[in-house]
Amino acid sequence: MNTSTIIFYAIAALILGAAILAVTTLKIFRSAIWLLFSLVGIAALYFWMQVEFIAAIQIVVYVGGIVVLIIFSIFLTQQSGKEMAKPATSKMIFSALAALFGTGFTFNLINHYGFNNISAAPFNPSVDEIGMQMLSTTSHGFILPFEVVSMLLLAAMVGCIVIAMKPTEATIVHLNKKED
């Protein structure tokens, strides 16, 4: 067992331990913090694999963005200081079964895949290469999904603005007329 393997198992233990704590803790805010540690652990795993760009994006998107969003929504909605009620036993049994089944399914798939050792470096993780691939129109380019995702994001943003927009006087009058 060399150093690299030891580090891998340490990171994996961090991810799994934090993830288990995230679902078992009874305080909602602590749950968010454990989720954060789990996601940071995944970023560490990416650093271990030397795909730094993905690791940085993992931190920016999940840790800096999504977890902060989750924490804010906990602050604004939940009574975050109180402990939540323990879930019912039947719920716990079924979720444990679902988790077991999911693990078994995934393990089955991975076990049958049979990973082959590849001598050559499988991909080039440099940033400019990623950028080129993202906007390339050749056979392995990602231009179409990239554009589709950006359309989706645009739609989501327009939706947010519509929800957040204050109704102007004209629209209020219009709505009142409709009600009459």
């Binding site: 913090i33 954060l36 940071v40 940085a56 994006i57 931190i59 920016v60 840790v63 800096g64 963005g65 977890v67 902060v68 924490i71």
Partner: peptide, 10 residues
Amino acid sequence: ISSVSSLSVI
């Protein structure tokens, strides 16, 4: 740098 500095808010 910009990704890690976003952690400080946590």
